[in-house]
Amino acid sequence: MTKVSITVDGVLHESEVEPRTLLVHYLREQVGKVGTVVGCDTSSCGACTILLDGRSAKSCSVLAVQADGSSVTTIEGLAGDEWHPVQAAFKECHGLQCGYCTPGMVMSAVDLLSENPNPSEAEIREGLEGNLCRCTGYHNIVKSVALAAETMKGGK
């Protein structure tokens, strides 16, 4: 077992983990952040996307020991008193159906907009290429991200 110290959604956690423990399993099983989910085993689907030190990462493809000393933001820590504009836009534009890809999709969109606050449709699509959705055909996800970009420019 290896000792790790990881800040998750603003709270410092010191834990013992097996070196083989995936960050996503650490989050789900040791920290109780079950909002972040696992969808595949080839780093393809992005359902497990979180922000690791502020940048999107697939938490199924990071070992918990690699994240030692880092700060993780999950879908559960995204909202403050109000929802993040990306969350609000996904609801407004019906950018989700079953919701399984949604935590990862939202976190990728948050990262995308932090890097490119004014993306074109093509840039939104490319920026989300690491996240698979089986329900929406992406149409409303793209609309959601575009709306979030507008909101964030306007208000915050």
Binding site: K33, V34, G35, T36, V37, T74, I75, E76, L78, A79, W83, Q87, F90, K91, L96, C98, G99, Y100, T102, P103, V106
Partner: peptide, 11 residues
């Protein structure tokens, strides 16, 4: 959507 967008889901 409220639960699905905030990770408060019950999978």
């Amino acid at each position: 959507d409220a639960r699905l967008l905030t990770g408060k889901t019950q999978w």
